[in-house]
Design a protein around this nucleic acid. Structure first.
Lengths: 199, 199
DNA sequence: GTCTATAGCCGGATAGAC
DNA sequence: GTCTATCCGGCTATAGAC
C-alpha cells in the first residue's frame, strides 16, 4: 500500500486541474492521465464527477483550516495574522495571474453552472471571513469586525480578478501595499474603529 | 428583413447565455433554441464557437463605449461620473449575485481555458480603466490617476465576487457606501491626492 | 437563409475480466 | 483495485435539400 492512497491522489490531482482549467472543462480522462490510472478504474473510487468535486472542496476546507491554525499560532498579533492572509497574494502571484483565486473562481463557476456544491464551496470563504473577523475583534472592532473581514476578503478577491485580467504583477504589489497601510491606519482601541477614515 | 438581423440576434442571445451559464458550458443548441433557429442554420452566420465569442466581446466593447459616453455626457462632474460606474453594482445587483460581473467572470474563465480571446476580453476592463483614470485626472490625481482607476475597478470586482459567493445584497450596499465615502474623502486639488488617508 | 440529416468526436458512466 | 471494452448522449461541425 502506497503512502498516499489512490483516492487521495485523485483528489489532489483533480484539485489542481479544477483550479487551473476549471471544473466543467476538466474531464475524467485528464484526471486519470494525471494520476496514471485508467478511466474505468476511476469509478471504483468515485461514482460521479460531483463526488470528486465534493471531495476536492472538502480537501480545500481542511487545508484552509490547517493554514488558518498555523497563522493563528505563528502570528505575533492580530495585525500580523491578517498580513499572513494578505501576503498570500504575493506568495501565489504567479498562479493567481494565470488562474485567479482558487476559491473565488470556483464559486463563480459553480454559480453559473447552478451547481448544488456552490454553497459548499462558499464555506471556504466563510472560514476566512470568520477567522479574519476574529482578528478584527481582537483589534477592538466590535460589531464591525465581520464587516471589516468581508471588506479585506473582498479586496483581495478584486486584486485577484484584475491580476488575471491584466497579468500585472506590479498591480498586485501596489494593492498589497495599500492594504498594509490601510491596516496600519486602523486604530486598535475598542470602538475606535467605528469612524476610521477609510470606512 | 427584420429590424434586428438574425446575426445580431444570435450575438445578443449568446451574450446573455455566456454571461449566465459561462462560455464553455453554453452549447450551440442552447443559443439556437434561444434565437429560434436550427443548429444547422447557425453555421451560415458563424463558422466556429470562437467566432461567436469574438462577436460577443466586440458587442460588449461597443456597448461599454456607449455607456461610458453617456456617463461622460450626463455626469455633472468627475466624482458624479465615477459614481455612475460604482452604482452599476446596485443597479445590476440581482444578476451580479447570481452570475457575478460579466467582464470579470469572462476574463477568469478564458484564462483557465487558455483561450486566445482572453486579451480581447480584458480590453473591456481597459476601457473602464482609461475612462476612470480620465476622471481622476480631472480631480487632480496626476500620475496616480491610473492607479486610482485600477483600485476602484478592482474594488468593484471584489464586491461582485463576494456577492455571488454569499448572495448577500446588504454587503453590496455596504461596500458601495464605503466606496462613496472613500471618493468624497479624496481631495480634488492637484497633487493633493498623493497622501490620501486611504491610499 | 433556413431547414433536416448526419458525420465524427469526446464526454460521463457501466460491465465484467483479471 | 486495476484493467479493457463498450454504451449512450451531447457536442461541434458539415452536407445538401428547399
Amino acid at each position: 500500500m502506497p503512502v498516499t492512497s489512490t483516492r487521495e491522489l485523485i483528489i489532489e490531482k483533480a484539485d489542481t486541474l479544477f483550479y487551473e482549467g476549471g471544473y466543467e472543462a476538466t474531464s475524467f480522462a485528464e484526471i486519470a492521465a494525471a494520476v496514471g490510472i485508467s478511466r474505468g478504474n476511476f469509478y471504483h473510487h468515485f461514482k460521479t464527477k460531483d463526488d470528486i468535486l465534493n471531495a476536492v472542496i472538502r480537501r480545500r476546507v481542511m487545508s484552509t483550516r490547517i493554514m488558518l491554525d498555523s497563522w493563528q499560532a505563528d502570528g505575533a498579533g492580530p495585525r500580523d495574522r491578517i498580513l499572513s492572509f494578505v501576503h498570500m497574494l504575493i506568495a501565489n502571484r504567479s498562479k493567481i495571474m494565470a488562474f485567479g483565486c482558487p476559491v473565488g473562481t470556483l464559486c463563480t463557476e459553480l454559480a453559473k453552472l447552478d451547481h448544488v456544491a456552490q454553497t459548499h464551496a462558499a464555506e471556504i470563504f466563510g472560514l476566512f471571513r470568520d477567522w479574519l473577523a476574529g482578528q478584527f475583534r481582537v483589534l477592538g472592532a466590535g460589531d464591525r469586525a465581520e464587516q471589516l473581514a468581508m471588506h479585506i476578503l473582498s479586496w483581495s478577491q478584486g486584486v485577484a480578478v484584475m491580476a488575471v485580467a491584466f497579468r500585472d504583477e506590479a498591480f498586485i504589489r501596489t494593492e498589497v501595499a495599500r492594504i498594509e497601510s490601510w491596516l496600519s491606519a486602523l486604530p486598535n482601541l475598542p470602538h475606535a474603529a467605528k469612524e476610521s477614515q477609510c470606512s
